[in-house]
Simulated scan of single mutants.
Amino acid sequence: MRLYDKVKWILGVLMIITLVITTNLVDRNNFLKINDAIETIYEDRLVAKDLILKISTLIHKKEIAAIKSDSVFYSDQNNQINNEVESYLLRYNQTKLTTKEKELLTNFENDFQDLKKHELNFIESNYIQNSKLLNQFPDVKTDLENLAAIQLKEGGRQLQISRRAMDSVELFTQIEIYILIVLAIVVQIIVMYKPKEE
């Protein structure tokens, strides 16, 4: 085999290898995007939504106790519920938060601290003055509703990221097939071509 033939073969093989490596790297990047989006949907959105639901349930129990002026609740369960809410907030803060979500979470934490202060005042008033306490619940519940809405919005955004990445994978796969066909034809032409000898 002459040097010219060897060079033709090497160029043909290198073109195919380059194409395969390039498309593989692009596909790998897109699959990483899909994987990240799925993990984010679970870890940062579904877990956060679950924590919001648990906190909402606990806040609802506190509201019912305030409406009923339930002294037994405040002596037996209130501190435990406050601790549970605090532990859920700690776990929530460990998720990946958007800027708006951080702001809303800070609002909720502040409103929750105000709620606890009003509860103390309510207890000190011998379960009589609950108007400030009852007026605090709508603020706390609004904060939780806003946080829940962000979970849905961000989950949808992550889903769109994964869909775009999947569309990109499909597009590159089709392009790869067409380029491989063209390269196979080019390699065949290069290999079969014999210059005229003088």
Rank of each mutant, 00 (worst) to 15 (best):
R2M: 12
R2H: 13
V7C: 06
V7E: 07
K8T: 03
K8H: 06
V13S: 10
V13Y: 09
L14T: 11
I17P: 01
I17L: 10
I21T: 06
T22A: 14
V26L: 13
D27M: 14
R28H: 13
N29F: 13
N29D: 13
N30L: 09
D36L: 09
D36E: 13
D36Q: 09
A37N: 01
I38G: 04
E39F: 13
T40Y: 14
D44E: 04
L46R: 06
L46H: 06
A48S: 09
A48H: 02
D50T: 07
S56C: 03
T57Q: 12
L58C: 06
K61T: 07
I64K: 05
A66S: 07
I67L: 11
I67R: 13
K68G: 05
S69I: 05
S69C: 08
S71V: 05
V72M: 10
F73T: 00
Y74K: 02
D76Y: 14
N79T: 10
Q80H: 14
Q80M: 12
N83K: 14
E86R: 08
S87T: 08
S87M: 10
Y88R: 00
Y88A: 04
Y88W: 07
L89M: 10
L89S: 02
L90Y: 15
L90Q: 11
R91K: 09
Y92V: 03
N93I: 04
N93K: 10
T95C: 04
K96L: 13
L97P: 01
T98Q: 04
K100Q: 14
K102I: 08
K102E: 11
L104C: 03
L104T: 00
F108M: 01
F108G: 00
F108K: 00
N110A: 15
D111P: 00
F112E: 00
D114H: 10
L115N: 01
L115C: 02
K117T: 15
K117V: 15
L120G: 13
N121C: 03
I123N: 01
S125K: 04
Q129A: 14
N130M: 02
N130I: 03
S131F: 09
K132V: 09
K132E: 11
L134T: 05
L134W: 08
Q136N: 07
P138E: 07
K141V: 12
T142I: 04
N146W: 03
A148T: 08
A148E: 11
I150V: 08
Q151E: 08
Q151F: 04
G155F: 11
R157F: 14
L159D: 07
Q160C: 06
R163I: 15
R164V: 11
D167Y: 13
S168W: 01
V169Q: 05
L171N: 09
L171Y: 12
F172R: 01
F172T: 05
Q174N: 13
E176I: 04
I177K: 10
I179Q: 02
I179W: 05
I179R: 01
L180C: 06
L180I: 07
V182F: 15
V182M: 13
A184H: 05
I185W: 07
V187W: 07
I190H: 05
I190P: 00
M192V: 12
P195T: 14
P195R: 15
E197S: 12
E197M: 09
E198I: 10
